[in-house]
């Protein structure tokens, strides 16, 4: 039976790369005692696929992996079993059964939600007009947003405006470093936009340089084409 697991990766675990995260969960499902199905051959691996890689340095509470199991306990018991074997920074929030004919998270993912905040280890203090301007002048009012996008085939200049579904700014006047930006961006194998690039272009629009380490980037959810969170495509057992 097909299962979708939603998990978080926070704190220092943002430095664990995508491949290492996969290896981590391959072991974790065994420690948790899940009745996982294995691939055939001399090096059997748990049948497992991840919806969307998370960049090094990015935290998340909305990561997804799809697994195949031969049998399963209830969702609540399975979440508890997985959380018992997690290291600090990893946590499992959901465990749902998918219809047998459902597509993998990797195929379905269409958009990703991010929260951007200011890294207190840095020295960046966001000015109000710029922070709010990223939502209004940079995103809403621009016809096109030209940016150099790094892809598999080198760098291409393209219009990223259609890949930004929304940007919402929340400025904290009492404590500007507590300000936040919320954004929903195209994600998945067809179109994928990294939040770093959006912030970089947004700051550049106002003549500011971008330093990645000035910001915390946190992914909150992955959604399908109908903008439904991937976990809601399965049922709790």
């Amino acid at each position: 039976m097909k299962i979708r697991v939603r998990f978080s990766k926070t704190g220092n675990m943002k430095y664990v790369g995508h491949l290492d995260t996969m290896r981590y969960f391959q072991k974790a499902v065994k420690r948790a005692g899940l009745d996982i199905a294995y691939t055939e051959g001399f090096s059997p691996h748990p049948v497992m696929s991840f919806a969307l890689p998370l960049g090094v340095g990015v935290t998340s509470e909305g990561e997804y992996m799809d697994i195949k199991v031969n049998s399963s306990l209830s969702s609540a018991e399975s979440v508890a079993a997985l959380n018992r074997v997690m290291t600090e920074g990893f946590g499992v929030s959901d465990y749902v059964r998918l219809p047998d004919d459902s597509k993998t998270g990797m195929t379905l993912v269409f958009a990703a939600d991010y929260t951007i905040s200011v890294n207190e280890e840095g020295s960046f203090i966001p000015p109000k007009d710029i922070w709010e301007g990223i939502e209004t002048k940079f995103w809403q009012d621009s016809e096109t947003i030209e940016a150099v996008k790094k892809g598999k085939h080198g760098e291409t200049l393209m219009d990223i405006k259609p890949l930004i579904y929304f940007i919402k700014s929340e400025y904290n006047s009492d404590n500007p470093v507590r300000s936040k930006l919320y954004m929903r961006l195209a994600a998945g194998s067809r179109n994928n936009l990294k939040p770093d690039l959006v912030i970089e272009e947004g700051l550049k629009f106002f003549g500011l340089a971008f330093d990645r380490c000035d910001f915390n980037i946190h992914r909150t959810e992955l959604l399908n084409e109908s903008l439904v969170p991937l976990k809601d495509l399965g049922e709790i057992i």
């Binding site: 220092n12 430095y15 790369g17 090094v56 340095g57 290291t87 920074g89 280890e121 380490c213």
Partner: peptide, 17 residues
């Protein structure tokens, strides 16, 4: 700090846990 961990190769070498 992040500034260093974001710069170096395989930063998971240095975080423990």
């Amino acid at each position: 700090p992040d500034k260093i961990l974001m710069q170096v190769d395989k930063s998971a070498r240095y975080i423990g846990n």
